[in-house]
């Protein structure tokens, strides 16, 4: 997919595990994993907002457009 999720890099930079993030943003670990591995088809604004709040980042830091 042309949109890639940079969650792995952000988590690494913040020294946070996926489980911790999932707990803080009230997302199931399964869904957090789907987001991290780029398998998600869509992301809710509420999830994006929560991720940006916890990782102190902008949506553009999390999502990147890479032409196929």
């Amino acid at each position: 997919m042309a949109i890639t999720v940079q969650l792995d890099d952000l988590l690494h930079a913040r020294r946070m595990t996926l489980t911790q993030l999932a707990e803080r943003i009230d997302l199931t670990l399964a869904n957090a994993s789907i987001l991290k591995t780029g398998k998600a088809k869509a992301i809710r604004f509420s999830t994006l907002e929560a991720v940006c709040r916890e990782l102190d980042c902008q949506p553009g830091d999390l999502l990147r457009y890479e032409p196929d």
Partner: peptide, 8 residues
């Protein structure tokens, strides 16, 4: 439903 299942 497929779309909803892929939404996080």
């Amino acid at each position: 439903r497929d779309d909803l299942e892929g939404t996080v």
